[in-house]
Design a binder for these strands. Structure first.
Lengths: 219, 219
DNA sequence: TTGAATTAAACAAACGTTTAATTAAATTTA
DNA sequence: TAAATTTAATTAAACGTTTGTTTAATTCAA
């Protein structure tokens, strides 16, 4: 099996980062509660106490990881664009999200799990805030497309966005299941990623086009 | 907040069942690892040792819960039906799944989590097997619809099914998030269920119709 | 030589599970 | 039916691990 965690480089910022990457992998695979601080320390080849030393606590480590990963600028740039049609923009959104999430299921699964079930209200709110900002960018693109008469007015925007996000989540979260269904080599994340990414992109574009576009001409 | 766990009735089978219901709720809310046997015992008002006594172990309790909940006959009956059109059948499927999952998110979330991340290979396989049977029934309905020239041939059947399941999962799993987006009263599962169920059904039917149906006449 | 980085060891609390004793229920015997 | 006996259900307490976190000593670098 592959190991995507980068090895320790010199310097201490890198060590902190290395711990974050290992934590991300383990949290994503076994859940927050299913991962012990000792697991993380061992896999990261650092002393157990270093995690408290760097982050304060297991929960603070999780917060640090979320802040480390939370970067959401691309959608805003896309919204400002004046050249692309709304349909093209949606295609870009799909490419962006599928790439982003497929290239890092561990973090996405962790966010999914902690966004709803974290014992810490603070963490739940943190995650939901991030997701909400994304939602609003996405909503703008769709309403803009409606205004410009590219998209139908009758659609349920919120549920459309949820359906789109849910589909991607489904194929990252239930990898074991879909590996079997689609006859992809078991426990080979790289193979899954490679086969799934283009297929999922083109499928989602199909679905969203059929759902969003006003039915005049055939594309 | 509501409590959907039924109270203890007389008889011992009921007590076993009562423990299962409490476990389902806690597992679904806090995850398998996030729930202790003591939590379950306390919430169920039974002695801690009773859980080992009835089920053997925490993991066996989980298995018992899965077997208790796994009942998948309705889709088979639907497949045998000769009167309904494939489109009507798909609508029934949507109603069936949305009702089923919305009326029991705890169990659905648990299956989602354990189907991929359970430390027990046995449990992962158990869950995936159940899901695969459902998948095959669903696939039959769609290929049947293609054969009868109701559905397009160009669609990606597997990903279509995944998209559909993923959408439902999204709205059960990320309830906190969608409650905020859709301005539904926070931490009120009953309100969420009530508002979401019809809305999700009609949205999914729209999406699937647009995606599946051969575009001849307007419906 | 001062302060940060790193360590092994220890901490108390929580974990899943088991034990041995007790109570309740069911079954058998008289 | 009543008492005796056996089986099952229930309990409080304890088991040995593992948990997240801290300590106090040591190493390292500035």
């Amino acid at each position: 099996m592959f190991n995507f965690v980068p090895s320790i480089k010199n310097g201490m910022a890198d060590k902190r980062e290395h711990i974050l990457m290992v934590a991300e992998k383990l949290f994503g695979e076994n859940g927050f509660d299913g991962t012990s601080v000792r697991d993380i320390a061992h896999q990261a080849n650092v002393n157990l106490a270093m995690i408290s030393y760097y982050f304060g606590s297991k929960e603070k480590l999780l917060e640090a990881l979320i802040e480390y990963r939370a970067s959401f600028t691309t959608l805003q740039e896309l919204n400002k664009d004046e050249v692309l049609t709304p349909i093209e923009k949606m295609d870009r959104v799909i490419d962006f999200y599928v790439d982003k999430i497929m290239s890092n299921f561990c973090f996405h699964n962790l966010m999914l799990q902690q966004g709803n079930n974290s014992r810490s209200e603070e963490i739940r709110e943190l995650i939901i805030d991030i997701k909400q900002k994304n939602f609003e960018q996405l909503k703008k693109i769709i309403t803009d497309g409606q205004r410009k008469k590219f998209f139908r007015k009758e659609i349920d925007i919120e549920l459309t966005i949820g359906t789109f996000m849910g589909a991607i989540s489904q194929f990252t979260q239930a990898r074991h299941y879909w590996s079997r269904i689609l006859h992809i080599e078991k426990d080979n994340d790289e193979a899954y990623r490679k086969k799934m990414t283009p297929r999922l992109k083109s499928h989602l574009k199909q679905v969203l086009h059929a759902h969003l576009k006003i039915k005049n001409e055939e594309s």
